[in-house]
Design a protein around this nucleic acid. Structure first.
Lengths: 191, 191
DNA sequence: ATCTATAACTTGAAGCTTCAACTAACAGTA
DNA sequence: TACTGTTAGTTGAAGCTTCAAGTTATAGAT
């Protein structure tokens, strides 16, 4: 079998800019990679399935509601919320429109600086989050946490952190606990 | 702050069927989880971006072409290919239609059992994979492998394997090297 | 032989995300 | 005051995935 029959591995020659790197993945690396691909395809689908079935919302919608519920005054700027929910501003805008129609979120133009828009979680939205959280956490525990030995949880944290450092260059803040780091600044009005 | 303000954590009471489980995630668990969420949202986007920019195909399309290129006679049953590429049969069918239009794949009704359809990689398709693989492997290396210490690669393999065991119950085969396990049986004709 | 059940696959519609404009609001400058 | 540039956010279209329904081909039963 030719080397080119192993396309998950790489070329016979290194890429430009990576002249010191081994060209292919080793068997160990390849195995880890293929399994990681399985995880990042199937796990989101499993989470979406649980949330859709039990609460009629997507995982992204859940994250939006969840992040808002954690914020002071249940309020966050659209652009801050987009970062916290791991989505683009455009995606968030569409989703907030849908959440607004369902009565869980409302938009407010930021007093003092009309360029900013705040998303605010309504009482109904808060109730929705509270009703949905238990099942979601149970799913996370069942699918991920309980599958791991205690020391693997720490390993996963470090590995995920390391990958995020490459995927979003210069984002060591990633995955910081919201109540650990400062909530995104000026969520309500500009300084 | 009420407990319900931490919706990524869980309810004050355990879920049905998990009576012995702690109801919330611990801070360590929560941190690992939030970072994992970042990975499975941002990493696929980064891979898609690289492949789209350099080759004009999605990561799923790449996996389809790649799996076919590894198969004997570059041929795989649609349903087997769907599993190997981590997708639904419906999704695969749509994608193969697009790949057929681009001349990289063709369909063949399985001789001997017309219920099965084989997808076959054309010469153009093979050339496409060979041209695309180097850049893709470089991206995988850059975004994931090189971000990890050697021992973390093995940890990642085990962790991903453990999670897949929960996400796809009874799928310990997951992430097996294609050339290690037998290729999906009767890819070309029924027994 | 026919009839039923089932598995593989396809298809069209609906919904969501992405992408590329486009608008709005403000800061800085003259 | 007007002009320019920048950033936040919105919007519509295009493309992809999902979902449910429909086809086709075969095995098994009568």
């Amino acid at each position: 079998m030719m080397a080119t029959d192993r396309p998950d591995q790489g070329p016979a020659r290194p890429q430009a800019g990576t002249d010191t790197e081994p060209p292919w993945l080793s068997d160990d690396e390849r195995e880890a990679w293929i399994r990681l691909v399985g995880v990042f395809i199937k796990l989101p689908a499993a989470l979406d399935a649980q949330l859709q079935r039990d609460a009629g919302i997507s995982h992204f919608e859940y994250m939006v509601l969840s992040r808002l519920s954690e914020a002071s005054d249940r309020t966050l700027r659209m652009s801050d919320l987009a970062v916290l929910a791991n989505g683009s501003l455009s995606r968030l805008s569409h989703v907030v429109t849908r959440l607004e129609r369902r009565g869980w979120v409302r938009r407010e133009s930021c007093p003092g600086d009309g360029r900013y828009t705040n998303a605010v979680l309504t009482d109904d939205g808060m109730a929705k989050v509270e009703a949905t959280a238990p099942g979601h956490v149970a799913a996370v525990r069942n699918l991920v946490i309980d599958a791991l030995r205690p020391e693997q949880v720490g390993q996963l944290r470090d590995i995920a952190q390391a990958i995020m450092g490459r995927v979003i260059p210069g984002a060591e803040w990633y995955g910081q606990l919201p109540h650990t780091g400062a909530p995104s600044p000026s969520a309500r009005r500009p300084a």
